[in-house]
């Protein structure tokens, strides 16, 4: 629904974002690939900004519409379609990626908010020929069916184990001061932002548990 002050709101957003860019402009790293002024998914007349961030270890610069989510920047501009769009509203978790090692819903954040950030998607965890341990465990335990939530589940799983190692408590942790343990209850609680409609939960918990128990 359009509101009378919509235009003003958008202008404010563009201005704010421009200032952000100016403040944190980062030097191009070796291997960076400058995108064309108009990437295919950004049309003429759009409020466009240049951003630079690191995706899966490679520096990337993009001219993006300020309305473009991080998810659409990855999927539509960088052709990293591993991160999925299930709801575009932060309800399903299929778009989960790691930003600075922490998991976020890439659909709930704008690309222009990630100037200088280090982003890891499922493609950055491993490849078909060199699987991440979590990817291999999902295959072994059949922790998926249709596969659409899977990249989000895997990114979340990797982050969950890090959160537990870092001592971050959850809703089911018995004590806030004690170190949380890797238990099925902890895993289920922390993974509950990632919906799997095919219902592979029981197998996903087995996969995560196996990776957690493996010596580092």
């Amino acid at each position: 629904m359009r509101t009378p002050d919509f235009a003003a709101t958008r202008r404010d957003l563009v201005m704010g974002a421009t200032l952000t860019t100016a403040a944190v402009a980062t030097p191009r790293r070796p291997g960076a690939r400058a995108a064309a002024a108009d990437t295919p998914a950004t049309g003429p007349g759009a409020p466009v900004m240049k951003i630079a961030f690191t995706v899966n270890g490679a520096a990337r610069t993009l001219d993006v519409d300020t309305r473009t989510t991080l998810l659409d920047a990855l999927r539509e501009h960088l052709d990293l379609t591993g991160s999925k769009k299930g709801c575009d509203h932060g309800q399903c978790g299929a778009c989960t990626v790691l930003v600075g090692g922490r998991r976020i819903n890439a659909c709930l954040t704008l690309a222009v908010m990630h100037q200088g950030d280090e982003i890891t998607t499922v493609e950055g965890l491993g490849t078909p020929d060199r699987l991440h341990a979590m990817q291999a465990a999902f295959i072994k335990h059949d922790g998926y069916q249709c596969g659409y939530c899977t990249p989000g589940q895997i990114c979340s799983s990797v982050a969950v184990l890090e959160e537990i190692r870092a001592g971050i408590p959850s809703h089911v942790s018995a004590e806030l001061e004690a170190r949380p343990q890797v238990t099925p209850a902890e895993i289920r609680e922390r993974m509950s932002g990632n919906i799997c409609r095919c219902g592979a939960y029981s197998n996903i918990v087995d996969a995560i548990t196996e990776v957690a128990e493996r010596p580092a």
Binding site: P40, E123, K140
Partner: peptide
């Protein structure tokens, strides 16, 4: 194990909206 498991777990399985390499512009 599923033979498509390596594609699905690494984000390389292309779903309907993701065949952008097959079309131009």
């Amino acid at each position: 194990d599923r033979i498509d498991g390596r594609l699905k777990t690494t984000g390389k399985a292309a779903y309907a909206y993701e065949h952008q390499d097959a079309v131009r512009r």
